[in-house]
Amino acid sequence: IRCIGVSNRDFVEGMSGGTWVDVVLEHGGCVTVMAQDKPTVDIELVTTTVSNMAEVRSYCYEASISDMASDSRCPTQGEAYLDKQSDTQYVCKRTLVDRGWGNGCGLFGKGSLVTCAKFTCSKKMTGKSIQPENLEYRIMLSVHGSQHSGMIVNDTGYETDENRAKVEVTPNSPRAEATLGGFGSLGLDCEPRTGLDFSDLYYLTMNNKHWLVHKEWFHDIPLPWHAGADTGTPHWNNKEALVEFKDAHAKRQTVVVLGSQEGAVHTALAGALEAEMDGAKGKLFSGHLKCRLKMDKLRLKGVSYSLCTAAFTFTKVPAETLHGTVTVEVQYAGTDGPCKIPVQMAVDMQTLTPVGRLITANPVITESTENSKMMLELDPPFGDSYIVIGVGDKKITHHWHRSGSTIGKAFEATVRGAKRMAVLGDTAWDFGSVGGVFNSLGKGIHQIFGAAFKSLFGGMSWFSQILIGTLLVWLGLNTKNGSISLTCLALGGVMIFLSTAVSA
């Protein structure tokens, strides 16, 4: 259960009878995928790494000078000259100064003066180019299975845990398959586009800190620079940016070097996208990844198990997540596992009318040892309800109150669905055939309105939902006002479609 501690969480529900669903994975976010007769899966884009970055340009932001020398000439005696002028490691300046009897010249006039100092770069920052084909995306998957609280967001041991898996995709191999043991396998067909235009970005490294910066900004930095990788004795261009020549006297000129420019660069980098280094690879934390999940090989585990009949206890007080759902960790005293956990939410304890829904599909106890633990997640209705676990006299209950409203949740879900469709863009549509167009249209309606429909009408039977949709269509056909007619027709059509397409 990876997503319960992530604030940016998206719930995606598969269409009834569908074998695939489109998701948008982004750094700092987590996606929970639910479908009829399929286990619930949490998917998170953990890291995006980039390798084989080529150094484009380096800037010196802290330097020192040494070996200063000057040469001067009297008027009419030609130009002052130093051998160091031809050495690229030196920074030199030529000027004219007033000369006369007082400073060793027989004539009054302008004399030539040249001053040089050896330039040494102490600290530099480097910009590297990123090729999209060198990106690698690491995705962690977790099935809502027989897990306890100690396994949440624990990325170790996934090789031997059938509840978890790690997959890596690249532009050259965008397809992967996550093996989930008894739950089958989940196929991923990803489109490795981060949403960032790397043709316009460089990877900047300064003092063990890293950013993504725009090329134009990078090339306009007014500091000494050299092109390409460091060859040991780089040729620094624009050395004068960190060196200041003071007022010249008759035979000498003082040279000083400016202080470190790291603070000024940090100020200019305010708002830039931060990154990290992992050995020789860069780690990015921006952008998104679009994936199509193929769920035809994914299956529920323990459908044929019998119900657990022994007593359950709450190991922890049920807690609310950031998303309005409830996490419950229970301990089973029996030894008759594997068995299914009898769990439901009810409005009252007399009729036990089921409300809400299970995020953890078909929760089971897989071990036959005593005191096995299991964590599950529920989506309670707004208002008061009861969490009921167990059967008969051994069942345990917990009162729950959820604040908020169904309308607010439906609106929030619609906005999130619209954002998801905007990110998917043209990849969500198939114009290759008439059937493809209608299929894409259905998927689009489901992406945007599916979660809201589930919130508003999830407790009704599909037949009642179709009746309401048919009534809206009838009202649309018999209303003389054009805008009201079109609105009723659209709402009725969407409702009829979703009542037959969205899983219960």
Rank of each mutant, 00 (worst) to 15 (best):
I1P: 00
R2W: 13
C3D: 11
S7A: 14
S7G: 12
N8A: 05
R9Q: 08
R9P: 01
F11V: 09
V12S: 02
V12N: 06
G17S: 05
T19Q: 06
W20G: 05
E26F: 07
H27G: 13
C30T: 04
C30A: 02
C30I: 04
V33W: 06
Q36S: 10
D37V: 00
T40S: 10
E44A: 08
L45G: 04
V46F: 09
T48N: 06
V50R: 00
V50C: 06
N52I: 06
M53H: 03
C60P: 02
Y61G: 04
E62P: 00
E62Y: 11
S64G: 10
S64I: 04
I65R: 00
S66R: 13
A69W: 07
A69Q: 15
S72Y: 06
Q77N: 13
Q77P: 00
T88P: 14
Y90C: 13
Y90I: 10
C92W: 13
K93I: 09
T95Y: 11
T95W: 08
D98R: 03
W101D: 06
W101M: 10
N103S: 14
C105G: 06
C105K: 05
G106I: 11
L107S: 01
F108K: 05
L113T: 02
K118V: 00
K118M: 10
C121D: 04
K123F: 06
K124V: 11
S129C: 09
I130Y: 08
P132N: 09
N134W: 11
I139G: 01
L141D: 10
G145I: 06
G145W: 11
S146W: 07
Q147C: 11
S149C: 10
G150A: 15
G157C: 03
E159Y: 01
D161A: 12
R164V: 12
V167N: 05
V167S: 00
T170N: 06
T170F: 06
P171Y: 05
N172T: 02
P174K: 08
T179R: 13
L180P: 04
L180K: 09
G181Y: 03
L186C: 05
G187K: 11
G187D: 08
D189T: 05
C190N: 09
C190H: 08
R193K: 15
T194C: 13
D197T: 04
Y203G: 04
T205I: 14
M206P: 05
N207S: 14
K209F: 08
K215P: 15
P222V: 11
L223Y: 09
A227M: 15
G228I: 06
G228D: 06
P234K: 13
H235N: 15
N237W: 15
N238I: 07
E240T: 00
L242W: 10
K246A: 01
D247G: 10
H249D: 07
V255A: 05
V255N: 02
S260G: 07
G263Q: 11
G263I: 09
A264M: 13
V265R: 07
A268W: 12
L269T: 10
L269N: 10
G271T: 10
A272G: 07
L273P: 12
E276Q: 03
M277K: 13
M277W: 06
G279K: 12
G279D: 15
G282K: 05
G282E: 10
L284G: 00
F285G: 14
K290G: 05
R292L: 00
R292K: 02
L293S: 01
M295V: 11
R299C: 05
G302W: 10
V303L: 05
V303Q: 04
Y305K: 03
L307I: 13
A310E: 08
F314P: 01
P318L: 12
L322Y: 11
G324P: 10
T327C: 05
E329G: 13
E329H: 12
E329F: 09
G334V: 02
G334M: 09
T335K: 12
D336G: 12
P338E: 08
C339P: 05
K340P: 02
V343E: 01
A346M: 15
V347L: 14
G356D: 05
R357Y: 09
I359T: 12
A361C: 05
A361D: 02
N362E: 03
P363Q: 07
I365E: 03
T366W: 01
E370W: 07
N371K: 08
N371T: 10
M375G: 06
E377F: 05
P381K: 04
D384V: 10
S385L: 04
I387P: 00
G392R: 14
D393M: 14
K394H: 12
K395E: 08
H399E: 00
H399L: 01
W400E: 09
W400Q: 07
R402V: 01
S403V: 11
S403Y: 15
S403P: 00
G404W: 06
G408D: 07
A410S: 08
F411Q: 09
A413Q: 15
T414I: 11
T414E: 03
G417A: 07
A418L: 02
M421T: 10
A422T: 09
A422Q: 06
L424E: 06
A428S: 11
F431V: 14
G432E: 11
V434E: 10
V434H: 12
F438K: 11
S440K: 04
S440H: 09
L441N: 07
L441S: 01
G444I: 12
I445R: 00
H446G: 02
F449K: 10
G450H: 06
A451D: 11
K454Q: 04
L456R: 08
F457V: 09
F457G: 01
S461T: 14
Q465Y: 04
Q465R: 14
L467W: 03
I468N: 02
I468R: 00
G469Y: 03
T470L: 10
L471F: 15
W474P: 05
L475E: 07
C488G: 04
G493R: 08
G493F: 03
V494M: 15
M495P: 00
S499D: 11
A501T: 15
A501F: 10
A501W: 10
S503T: 13
A504C: 12
